[in-house]
Write a protein that binds this DNA or RNA. Structure first.
Lengths: 226, 226
DNA sequence: TTAAAATGTAACATAATTGTAATACCTAAG
DNA sequence: CTTAGGTATTACAATTATGTTACATTTTAA
């Protein structure tokens, strides 16, 4: 089995070294960069997890995370934020980025490794390779390209299915209309925001009682809540 | 002739060791892993056969098999399932994965080796053993390259036959036109997507009542549904 | 070589989907 | 309790995807 790759992005060089040293002992392959700008020049999609400092030079970790989450090929890479103080946790929550975890400085190396392993365990199964994604009695079979609700087949259109998959894979995450457009409509066509609303409405109707799990966050966008 | 490679996936480590030891004596090269997740990280296409436990941790052998069958580069690797009890055989049948064989625990090592050799003999290219793929009264004789519907011979063209075989071997799986082109037309010629549609139409017509089992998933592609 | 079969393509028919606009409705901030 | 700025819903139009047929081209077999 090939090692899992971790990218550490932090402007404190010494901290990076410590993390690298210890994570490597724990069996990971580790690269480090000292700024978001440099990190973005790497082939980020090759990493299995990113440890990201929130407070850095010009570009904040938050900004970098938003960029990563907005791109198809990096959107599913788990990110663990490192925050200087507790108060910054609100910031993370407020930005509604798909933060997979966060950890408050100062932290023990042992703690970081535990978090890393936990997140990787959590995300490795429900990533690309899964054949279905489900919530209770609502299931999307990714190979058969169909949706099953209470054991009954529900006929979803491609767009509806893609939205549902996105939401089920990222429960709790609120996606802005812009996010959704980038990830489902891609860059090729330009459609109005209203179009998303209509597709959401149609999807809600088709998935019956689970329709109410697709929530609207006024001014932000949509997401799936448990 | 280079040794044939076998992958054993079972969460019982001791059983893996026993199988590995004996299969190696029998002249095979053997790797073992203890979970489906780990197995999927290996370069599975390098193996000639997979011995797969059905009951494992998070991901079941069934799920793993479905994943393998859905990917072009691993779809044709024979799989022998190991089931704990007889009753699980129904499960295999129910899932309609292209199970090449199954074997019930507890089993003798001699038995396993016999099955492995038998399956490899059957699936290796220079074999003459009769093998067919069928669904109810629709059958394709892979050796004679013939299709039999309700006992009557149906004359299919090569392309029609190949599509039908692909679908019957992977029931439930939806193949995109791109998939179908890669697997049946290969890289040699470039044809339009419309060509596939036309061949699907012809095939549907020829296989009578089973024609409706070839389903269209708008925006995704075609597949065979039970 | 020729006829039959197989295959690919174009053109059109049909069906499903997606997008838009208009309108009704809701929500949060004053 | 208003109001302004979202959001939901509906019906319809536009677009896109697929089905079908006829025919052109290629291959096969005698």
């Amino acid at each position: 089995m090939t090692k899992q790759k971790i990218l550490v992005v932090d402007d404190e060089e010494s901290l990076c070294e410590i993390l690298k040293f210890n994570l490597e002992i724990a069996g990971f392959e580790v690269d480090t960069t000292f700024s978001a700008e440099k990190a973005l020049k790497l082939s980020i999609k090759d990493y299995d997890l990113i440890l990201l400092d929130i407070m850095m030079g010009k570009m904040s970790g938050i900004q970098m995370a938003q960029i990563l989450k907005s791109k198809m090929e990096t959107a599913d890479i788990p990110i663990i934020f490192c925050t200087a103080k507790d108060t910054e946790n609100d910031t993370i929550a407020g930005f509604n980025i798909g933060a997979d975890d966060y950890i408050t400085k100062p932290f023990s190396v042992r703690e970081v490794i535990a978090r890393v392993k936990s997140v990787l365990r959590r995300t490795s199964t429900d990533s690309n390779e899964k054949i279905s994604v489900e919530y209770e009695k609502l299931k999307v079979d990714l190979i058969r390209k169909r949706c099953i609700l209470d054991g009954e087949k529900v006929s979803l259109t491609k767009k509806e299915m893609e939205i549902l998959i996105l939401f089920l894979k990222n429960r709790g995450v609120i996606f802005s209309r812009e996010d959704i457009l980038r990830r489902i409509w891609k860059d090729d066509v330009v459609v109005l925001d209203r179009t998303i609303d209509v597709n959401i409405t149609r999807l809600r109707k088709k998935i019956g009682k689970y329709g109410s799990h697709i929530v609207t966050r006024l001014g932000y966008g949509y997401g799936f809540e448990e």
